[in-house]
């Protein structure tokens, strides 16, 4: 059956009606093409919107009990409450976001600063790789959360231990992607640079690093995702300042407010999405040569 949907929606979902009804396979020029592109872009959030509408409809119809999963409207109210009154009262949402962001960013920055050079060395020198790989592969499977007691022992409860936990989660994806990125460089590129007079420093900074950049950026994207996952869990164990999205969610659980719990989850999702979006935009700019 042919669905009554517009061309751009069909294109977005990849719905095609076969050869008899080719879907915009022809040529579009200038303004028309631009407007189609714009329409396609604005349609990207349509599925999300649709799910939320369906969810609300199901909640209103009583199909989803409010005590199991709050409705979108209830969550929105929870969000407003978090933003204005705060949880615990006085500790508002912006503070929680900033608190968590600071921990994630400092942990990932720490991981980047250490994993990037180490990964480049491991990628370039097989001997270094042979020596370090067993250590890496033994520490890597340990969940960052298993480190929480040790982290608290070493750094006490607070930002330092949270940053350490995130560092552990973010370190390995950046390391492995950097190693992989350097190892897969076309060897001729290295040889050509050596012939043209590149020393080790120039080789690393001007050849290996830019060549490995695409996979390094992939590593950073994965690291940020893992950073959020571990951070929120790490904050469950407590924070000193009283600010943190994970801590906020735990507090909401303690006072039995699922609407606030889900609002907190949604905020983490949106921030994570926004960060990835920013990195992807930066990637497009930095890697325009690809």
């Amino acid at each position: 059956m042919r669905l009554p949907v517009s061309t751009s929606i069909r294109k977005y979902f990849g719905i095609s009606y076969g050869k008899r009804f080719p879907v915009s396979r022809g040529i579009r020029e200038g303004k028309e093409r631009k407007s189609v592109q714009r329409a396609n872009k604005s349609l990207r959030f349509l599925p999300v919107f649709g799910v939320v509408v369906l969810w609300q409809a199901a909640s209103s119809a009583g199909l989803i009990p409010e005590n199991r999963l709050p409705s979108p409207v209830a969550i929105l109210h929870g969000f407003t409450e978090l933003a204005t009154e705060g949880l615990p009262p006085g500790y508002t949402l912006v503070g929680h976001c900033i608190g968590s962001l600071k921990r994630v960013l400092s942990g990932v920055a720490l991981a980047l600063a250490s994993a990037l050079p180490l990964g480049m060395f491991m990628g370039y020198w097989g001997r270094v790789r042979d020596i370090l790989t067993p250590f890496v592969e033994m520490v890597r499977p340990i969940p960052p959360l298993a480190w929480v007691p040790i982290a608290i022992l070493w750094f006490g409860i607070g930002d330092k231990s949270a940053a350490f936990i995130i560092f552990l989660g973010a370190f390995f994806p950046i390391l492995l992607n950097t190693v992989g990125g350097v190892m897969t460089i076309n060897k001729r590129l290295i040889e050509s640079s050596l012939i043209l007079g590149a020393g080790k420093g120039a080789l690393f900074m001007k050849v290996l690093a830019p060549a490995a950049m695409p996979s390094i950026i992939t590593g950073i994207r994965i690291a940020l995702g893992i950073g959020w996952m571990t951070l929120v869990a790490a904050e469950f164990t407590g924070v000193k300042s009283g600010y943190g999205l994970g801590y906020m969610i735990m507090t909401a659980r303690d006072i039995q407010r699922p609407d606030l719990v889900v609002a907190g989850m949604a905020i983490i999702g949106v921030i994570g999405f926004a960060m990835d979006f920013i990195i992807r935009k930066m990637e497009q700019r930095v890697l325009k040569w690809r």
Binding site: L189, E191, S192, A211, W289
Partner: peptide, 20 residues
């Protein structure tokens, strides 16, 4: 005894730094 700029080399496949 090692690569030097006095001896240039052109490889089978063109070798260029793709980001430059």
């Amino acid at each position: 005894t090692g690569p030097v700029r006095e001896v240039g080399y052109i490889f089978q496949e063109p070798v260029l730094l793709p980001w430059r």
